[in-house]
């Protein structure tokens, strides 16, 4: 042996040995605790990379202003009247759109190797995914607040009051959370973050535009009307609109919960399967 490595800093070696000495391990965290730790990580990422909030803040503002003033006069006779109709829809559109970033960030974690570190830990396995989605819920809430506050400034007057608006946002966050499992599945099965975005866009554009967000489906040809009326986003918009304006029915909310249940039942196990035996 010719290379005797110089000690980097005096005393480092002792500290290193001391740091390596403890072999006791604390008790494993439970599923909820582990998920919350991953949720904390998602919040830290928002703190360090605030740019990722750009889509959360800019999208809603642009969409709301653009659609209200572009179509309002033509579709409803006045922009203020159209705003009452379109705002709940815009809210649904922006929040469901930003769910796509779940898949993209997840895919980046996988390709950077962060994921393998987490997967090699003895923690409840779905915690990584559940925690990331928890962080996303914060983003959805933030985006919702921006839309509602801006809407009120522009003249949006929800008849359902504060409670109606809060319930509408809560329902939307639950739906978005369920929808995110699709992007999680995509994020784990596609190769690059870019391809995740492309595929997600291909799904989200028809899913959000071919709905009752902008116009009454009665004005559409029958075949489009048929698609729109089975689109779960349509049901979500109907329920959110109903909650905000105080005209909601149990059936409207029931359809949304059914859609959430189906999404989670199909995509959560699929995502967990991909996560567990990746490749």
């Amino acid at each position: 042996m010719t290379t005797t490595s110089p000690r980097p800093v005096a005393g480092t070696d002792e500290r290193l040995r001391a740091a390596l000495a403890p072999r006791t391990r604390p008790e494993r965290p439970g599923p909820l605790a582990a998920s919350l730790v991953f949720g904390w990580r998602a919040l830290l990422k928002i703190k360090h990379v605030p740019e990722q909030l750009f889509d959360v803040t800019a999208f809603p503002v642009i969409f709301l202003l653009m659609f209200t003033y572009l179509f309002g006069g033509a579709l409803s006779g006045s922009t203020s009247e159209y705003l009452q109709y379109v705002l709940p829809g815009i809210l649904v559109m922006t929040v469901t759109m930003i769910t796509m970033y779940t898949g993209m960030t997840l895919n980046a974690d996988v390709s950077r190797g962060v994921f393998d570190r987490f997967r090699s830990l003895p923690v409840w396995r779905p915690a990584v995914l559940a925690g990331a989605l928890l962080g996303d819920a914060v983003r959805y809430t933030l985006a919702s607040m921006i839309v509602v506050v801006l809407g009120v400034l522009l003249g949006f007057r929800p008849e359902g009051g504060v409670v109606g608006v809060l319930l509408a946002v809560a329902l939307l966050v639950v739906f978005s959370y369920s929808l995110s499992w699709i992007w999680t599945t995509l994020g784990l099965s596609l190769r690059t973050p870019n391809s995740v975005v492309n595929v997600s866009m291909m799904i989200m554009f028809p899913a959000t535009f071919l709905t009752n967000i902008f116009v009454d489906p009665e004005t559409m040809p029958w075949w489009l009307n048929a698609f729109v009326s089975v689109n779960p986003v349509t049901h979500l918009v109907t329920a959110v609109r109903g909650l905000m304006h105080g005209t909601v029915t149990a059936a409207q909310v029931g359809w949304v919960f059914l859609a959430c249940g189906v999404l989670v039942a199909v995509f959560a196990p699929l995502a967990m399967y991909l996560y567990g035996g990746k490749e």
Binding site: P26, V37, W40, R112, D116, F118, V123
Partner: peptide
């Protein structure tokens, strides 16, 4: 690897908390 977006301290705290 560790999360590049987080600080060194945050990365280690995160893992320590995951270990309980």
């Amino acid at each position: 690897s560790v999360d590049e977006d987080l600080t060194g301290l945050e990365n280690l705290v995160l893992l320590a908390r995951l270990f309980g």
